[in-house]
Amino acid sequence: MHIVFRSDVGKRRKNNQDFAGYFVNQQGITLAVLCDGMGGHKAGDVASEMAVSHLGHAWEKTETNTIEAVSQWIQDRIKRENERIVEKSNQFPDLEGMGTTLVAAAFIDNQFVVANIGDSRAYQYMAGRLKQLTEDHSLVNELLKSGEISTEGALNHPQKNVLTRSLGVSKEVNADLMVVSALEGDQLLLCSDGLTNMVEDQEIAEILSDSHMSLEEKVTSLVSLANARGGYDNITVMLTDFTERKEGE
Rank of each mutant, 00 (worst) to 15 (best):
H2T: 14
I3D: 04
K11W: 00
R13E: 10
N15V: 11
N16T: 12
F19Y: 15
Y22C: 14
F23V: 05
V24N: 07
N25D: 06
G28K: 06
G28I: 07
G28A: 09
T30F: 00
A32Q: 06
V33S: 03
C35H: 02
D36C: 07
D36F: 08
G37H: 08
G39A: 13
G40R: 04
H41S: 12
A43H: 06
G44Q: 09
D45R: 03
V46T: 12
S48T: 12
M50E: 03
A51P: 02
A51C: 15
A51S: 13
V52K: 11
L55Q: 06
L55R: 10
L55I: 13
G56K: 03
A58S: 15
W59K: 09
E63P: 01
T64K: 05
E68P: 04
W73Q: 06
R77E: 15
K79H: 13
E81D: 05
N82D: 02
R84C: 01
S89Y: 01
D94Y: 09
G97D: 05
G99L: 06
T100V: 12
L102W: 00
V103Q: 08
A104C: 13
A105F: 00
A106N: 01
Q111W: 00
V113R: 00
V113A: 02
A115P: 04
N116I: 02
G118H: 08
D119K: 06
Q124K: 13
M126N: 15
G128Y: 05
Q132E: 10
T134G: 09
E135D: 12
E135M: 05
G147T: 06
G147I: 08
E148M: 11
E148T: 02
I149V: 14
S150N: 09
T151D: 11
A154S: 15
T164M: 09
R165D: 11
R165T: 04
L167D: 02
V169W: 00
E172S: 14
D176Q: 14
M178D: 09
M178V: 04
L188K: 01
M198Q: 15
Q202R: 13
A205W: 03
I207C: 07
I207G: 07
L208P: 06
S211K: 15
H212Q: 14
H212G: 14
L215W: 01
E216T: 15
E216I: 05
E216R: 10
K218V: 07
V219G: 10
V219T: 11
A228W: 00
G230L: 06
Y232H: 13
N234E: 09
M238C: 10
L239M: 08
D241L: 09
E244S: 14
K246F: 04
